[in-house]
Every structure is written in structure tokens, then in C-alpha cells.
Design a protein around this nucleic acid. Structure first.
Lengths: 309, 309
DNA sequence: ATTTTAAACGATTACGTAATCGTTTAACTA
DNA sequence: TAGTTAAACGATTACGTAATCGTTTAAAAT
């Protein structure tokens, strides 16, 4: 009938559609979901949808979902493992067909549990160790490497790094790329040149102050995301340092504002929208075939050279 | 039983919960929705979730939804009325309990239709003319007024305005506030001092170029949002103009970055998170009682004076 | 002792769809 | 002409819940 499951004569078809119009009939997706055992809904769990980077990833998820016939239930875990667990339970009860997962913490237990219960999951933007799960991620090590290599190419040897919250954690691949580039070019990694930030402007601002307070401040700085780079530029400007002559600064992400900072920000562009869209594509593949082996996609990043370094 | 609809003895209760644990039983929200005729889901229709302002509003919606027991299905209309209509149909078929609506265009026909069909709706962030609907909105006229009055207080008389896409449309309340402030202080509104932008950095950048190209450029500029203000700062900096001495600039929104531009951006802070949260609270009230008269909440804004003006 | 009342719980049914099964009619083969 | 096959469609049932109705048992009232 309506769902083209068998042959229906033209005449009856016409009469049915006519009646649908007259009665203002619209299919009830809830009843349909109950019967078909699929909802055409997917969940997206993120630490904070208002964080610009994730907002753009979410937009990619949304766009691909629309294209492929899925609605997206967005869940802000707020970096809170308990709230994350609450949302996971809710999404399971609401029978979403799959989940795009941007983890709140380093732990992989939540995803592990989901997988074991047969829920299709794609982990997005971060690696979770020890879980066999579809993953889509940007080349973060490569990003740090690209940025640092660029600064080395410019002649810098004393290069600082404004890292994320956990310098040693799995999260800081970008910091690892920084170290690898230094090593590759025979430059000693100096721990005093690596300062932690909080991935926001304020953290970059404070971190830059610490770097500039060193006896021998760096001549260039790689900030592990653009927000912190903006904070770092702010610090340098207040000190009346010229960028890039006195300190060069390179960020990471390429947020929309990066072209319009003062000076404009050199950065390593991340494929944010693409990452979200690919997560959904992989998720739909997984929904279709739950038995195939998990894949891991590493998306390349682009060095964008502007005026800050 | 589980839903506390009648008395059950302690003993049986214990046995039931025991069995639930043993069988790993979890209620099926789809079946429950079908039976109860409510889904505990709400839809949020926005032009673009990756636009920072809307991302923060969405976060407010998400937080209040979580608190009140609702999940949020986010729908990006992408400013496209057809896609908006598609999403509306989908949300209706999926039987969301209500919709938070940030309209794609100026037309109110979509909302009008929703209302007529009995769907609870709260319009957020923009007024839709001619529809009786719950609305929560920031004081945009007041914002423009506050910003402009501040510039007048600083002694400026020749004040430019970087407006949104439709200068005359209902959308540009902030521009109207600008005009009202000028009028209030007996300053003539000069059309050549009002330039349209696109609400993004690029548009602010271009608009500022136009303003500076005038025979008599303004000594101060009110940009109708912060992204355009950042673009304007960028233009002024490239021209080696000092801010605020040569041109003062005031923005609107107070995005996270506003404290870290160079110089830091004076702006009119909008209650973004609060607006989203209030939209959900109003929506839940509406869901409870569909017959009460619609209300309109006007949220106050705050002038934040920093270094740019 | 008999009736009344309430506590406690089992059993039935509707929600709106889609898959399955079964029935009618016509066409086609032997 | 009888038997076979397929086209076209109506009718039944399951999906998992919650509201309603009905039944049993015990306590309370007369």
C-alpha cells in the first residue's frame, strides 16, 4: 500500500490517497516505530553543544541525518559522567537506532556497555582505548606536527605549547604532535615550555602569561585550539609584543573567527562538519550490518597560514 | 505498579523489582509513548545550530529539557523554508510534545499552521507578527538603544550602524534601537551611516570598509552582533586606526570571545542560555494547559563596557 | 452470622502501524 | 471443462505499554 510492499491497482491507490487527503491523515511515527522496531532517530552525546567546535560537528551530524532520513536527539553530557549515563539510558529506552558519541571523559566503559548491548555506536573526535568500535577522528597528532613544523620552518627553535587539560592523557594528541615535530628536527622538548590551558580563551590568556614570564620566553607558541590561541594573542598584545615578529602564534581548529583576529590567526583547520557527517554515514552502515568489523577513519587536517605565524 | 498508579504490597513490589533486575528489563519508551500519547520529546527548529548565539540558546533548551524530563530533537532549517517545513512535518509525525521555534524567515505561516493543529509552540529569539503564540525574546530594541546611548554618552555624534540583512524588516530591532537612541538625543539619522552586514565576520568587515570610505566616516560604530563587530575591528586595525580613539566600536551578544578581542569588545550581553531555558519552561506550561492565553516574555540585556568603546 | 467495604492484584483492551495469512476473482494451462 | 496459477485485496495479529475492569480475599460494619 503506502509503503510499496505489494501491488495495488491504480484505482484503489488513487482512492486511498484521496481519502488520506480528505481525512488529513498522517502516519504516526510512534506506532510505526513500535511495529518496525526502528525509530529513524539517532542520539548524539556531546560534552557541550555550545562549544563552537562541537556545534559545527553537530551541524554535520544534523545535515547527514536529514539526508539519510534520521532525526537527531542532542544530549549535552556537560562533561559529567553521571549525566552522560542518564542520557544513555534515556536513548536506549527511546530506542534510537544508533548513537554518535563524543565522550565526556577518558573512560570507555559507557561505550563498552552500549556495544555489548548491541547498540550501534560511532565514536567521534576522540579515541577510546580498548574498545572495538567505529571511530571517526581528525588527525590530531598530525595537526600538532603540522603547526609545529611550520613554526620550525619559519626559523623558530624555542617553541612553546599551550596544551589541553591533560598533558599526558590520551586527549592531548595535538601536544604529542608538537613533541614529535620537535624531536624530528632535533629540538629538545623542554617541559617548562609546555603549559596547560582549559581549551578556552581564558586558559590561553593565562598560559601565555606563564610562557612570557619565563627567563627565556619562547619565540613562537603552538596553542592546541583556536580559543586558547585567541587568548594568547590577547596576552601578547597587552604586552605590546608584535605578532609574529616578537612571538609567532599558531592555533588549531580554524574556527570562523580565525580570519578576523588581529593579526589573523594561522591555524590547522579541522574537518568539523565532515567529521559529523561521516560519523552518521558510518553509523548508518553499522545499523545496516551489525556484524562487520569496526573501522576507524582518520581525517586529514589542513595548515592555514595567515598573519600570526 | 512501577508507575505508582495504585497500591501494591511491599512484598510483590520487591519481587517485581527483583524480576526486573534478573530479566534486565527496561521500559520501552516507544510503546509507552504510543499508549500515553506523549513522547517526552520536544523539537527545536533553528536556522543553524553552529551559529554561536543559537548554540548557546540550544544549550539552554537542552539543560531545561533535561531538568524537566524532555529530550530535544534538534532540527537545522538552514534558513530554508522548505527544509523547515519538512522538519515540521517530521516532528508532527514523530509526535513531539512541543516545539521551540527559531524561525528561518519572516513568515509566520509555519507557526500559524502548527498552532492551528494544536501543537504547543514557543517562538524564541524573534517576533512573528500576527500570530498569537508564546514568545520569549531578548530586548533587541533596548540593546540597540543601550549600545548607541553609551556611544552618545562618550561624546560621539556621528555614529554608524552595521545592521543585519534586512534593515527595514521586523528582524532588525537592534537597528531600530539605534535609531531611537539617536532620535532621543536629537541626532539626525543618516541613511549613509547604516550599512547592511550578514551577521558574520565577513559582513562586518565589508560593512566597516564602506563606512570608513565615506567622506565623513563615523567616529563610532554600533555593530548589530559581535561577529560583525569583530569584523569591523579587523578592518579598523588594518587601516591602523586606533580603537576607541579613532573609532569606537560596540557589538551585541557578548559571545565568549568578546573579552579577548584586541581591544576587548564593549557589547550588549544577551541572555542566551536563559532564553533557551525559559522557552522550554514556557513550552511545558503550554503542554500542561493548551487553553490559556499566550504570553510574551521580554528578557533584559546588559551593557558590558570593555575597551573598544 | 451476614452483608458491606476495601485492599490487593490478575486479566483484558486500546494505542496505530506493518507483516502475515487468507480469500476472492480472473486469467491461463492441460 | 476442470484444474492451476497469479493478481488484488481484506482480515488478523503482534509490537510493549497503561488504563480499565473484574475477581479474590480479608477486614470491618451491622
Amino acid at each position: 500500500m503506502i509503503n510499496e510492499t505489494r501491488f495495488v491497482s491504480q484505482e484503489l491507490k488513487a482512492r486511498v490517497y484521496q481519502a488520506m487527503r480528505e481525512l488529513n491523515y498522517h502516519p504516526n511515527a510512534i506506532a510505526r516505530s513500535l511495529r518496525r522496531k526502528k525509530t529513524q532517530n539517532i542520539g548524539m552525546i556531546v560534552p557541550d553543544i555550545s562549544y563552537p567546535f562541537l556545534a559545527e560537528v553537530a551541524r554535520g551530524v544534523e545535515d547527514a541525518g536529514f539526508e539519510l532520513g534520521y532525526n537527531v536527539i542532542v544530549c549535552d553530557s556537560d562533561g559529567d559522567l553521571e549525566r552522560e549515563a542518564d542520557y544513555i539510558r534515556l536513548l536506549q529506552e527511546k530506542k534510537v537506532d544508533g548513537i554518535v558519541f563524543v565522550a565526556a571523559g577518558e573512560s570507555s566503559s559507557h561505550v563498552q556497555t552500549l556495544i555489548e548491548q548491541g547498540m550501534p555506536v560511532v565514536v567521534c573526535d576522540r579515541d577510546l582505548p580498548g574498545v572495538e568500535v567505529d571511530t571517526v577522528i581528525a588527525d590530531n597528532v598530525g595537526s600538532g606536527y603540522q603547526a609545529t613544523e611550520h613554526l620550525i620552518d619559519l626559523g623558530h627553535r624555542r617553541i612553546g605549547c599551550i596544551a589541553g587539560p591533560q598533558v599526558l592523557g590520551i586527549s592531548n594528541k595535538r601536544g604529542n604532535g608538537y613533541k614529535r615535530a620537535l624531536g624530528r628536527y632535533g629540538i629538545l622538548v623542554r617541559e617548562e615550555l609546555i603549559v596547560r590551558g582549559d581549551f578556552r580563551c581564558r586558559g590561553g590568556y593565562e598560559a601565555m602569561r606563564k610562557l612570557l614570564a619565563l627567563d627565556e620566553p619562547p619565540t613562537a607558541v603552538f596553542a592546541c585550539n583556536d580559543l586558547m590561541a585567541v587568548g594568547a594573542i590577547c596576552t601578547a598584545s597587552k604586552r605590546r609584543l608584535r605578532i609574529p615578529q616578537d612571538v609567532a602564534i599558531v592555533g588549531c581548529d580554524d574556527i570562523a573567527l580565525a580570519s578576523f583576529t588581529n593579526p589573523s590567526l594561522s591555524t590547522v583547520a579541522q574537518p568539523k562538519h565532515e567529521m559529523g557527517a561521516m560519523a552518521v554515514e558510518m553509523l548508518v552502515e553499522r545499523i545496516k550490518d551489525k556484524s562487520k568489523p569496526p573501522t576507524r577513519r582518520l581525517l586529514p587536517t589542513d595548515l592555514v597560514i595567515r598573519d600570526s605565524g
